[in-house]
Design a protein around this nucleic acid. Structure first.
Lengths: 156, 156
DNA sequence: GCATAGTAGGTGCGTGCGCACCTAGCTGTC
DNA sequence: GACAGCTAGGTGCGCACGCACCTACTATGC
């Protein structure tokens, strides 16, 4: 039912399918993921991501600013996420000795335990709905595309 | 700095690159897009999307429920988006004669004009940062992937 | 030393949205 | 017709987040 050219630049059908499809797949997946994590673990996806990245870090600790970089949230957002996680005992905060302005978020044992259960179900979900639809060669190509595009998009 | 296997299922590196890359690219692009639309047109991306889909519809009008389906927002979210757009004169509302529970959102002339300026810059941005990084064959493959995956992800 | 600029983290405020619920109206069964 | 059950849209409430700003601290220039 397109109104045909109403005067100015629009996406071509191919562009629309490629870009719009990415938006659609992301939106649907996020709905599934948020519901799943909320029901099983009472945490949000960003909270899960913070726990995950802490688990990757040496000694399970990261500076707030490092958590904020390469996150979908701003520093203020991360600050509040860490506050929420601290309130339920999944992380603790500790001020940085080498720079007294700074603070570390540190994964607790309870946080690590929670992450493990959250992660196994999460991985299963993303595999079932998304990753399993692609062969290894296709996943490799997809990853290569993101590596190609991502550095061209400014972080801030 | 991975903590190596801490006991339960995790993404493989390949899976992590494919899925994490999608999240990263989407997040960065959305930041750019929101800032651009806000600065140039004082509208958000969801508001833009509603205007766009109205412009595609016959007579530039759609039922609220049809706007909500296949949107990233719920019905209540769409209801508020339409309310905001109505308040600034970009759409009007009209109750549906064939089902008196229902309502149409209708694009106004001002809304169409706004959409045109918003869209041209938006298309340019998405092309510059994303679409132009791919060849036509790659865009076709990407679109095919989304077509393959999307129906397997429940809408609600 | 002192002054200025820059940075890390936190916070008041405004806003956007989901959830649960409400009302009005449609539909189906009897 | 009467009544139950469903659906479309809107709304009160709570919450998460960005923006702008604040405080505490560090870094740089003199």
């Amino acid at each position: 039912m397109n109104d045909q050219d109403d005067g100015l630049e629009d996406f071509t059908p191919l562009e629309g399918d490629a870009w719009g499809g990415l938006l659609g797949v992301h939106g649907r997946m996020m709905r599934l993921i948020e519901r799943d994590l909320a029901e099983r673990c009472r945490i949000s996806h960003v909270e899960f991501e913070v726990l995950l990245r802490l688990s990757w870090a040496g000694n399970h600790r990261m500076r707030i600013q490092d958590l904020a970089a390469d996150s979908v949230l701003t520093r203020s957002g991360i600050s509040r996420v860490v506050e929420r996680l601290e309130r339920v005992g999944l992380v603790t905060r500790e001020s940085a000795p080498e720079d007294r302005r700074g603070a570390y978020a540190i994964l607790t044992d309870a946080g690590l335990a929670m992450l493990r259960t959250a992660r196994s179900g999460h991985v299963a979900l993303v595999r079932e709905r998304f990753l399993s639809r692609f062969g290894p060669d296709e996943l490799e190509q997809m990853a290569a595309w993101w590596r190609r595009v991502e550095p061209a998009i400014p972080t801030s």
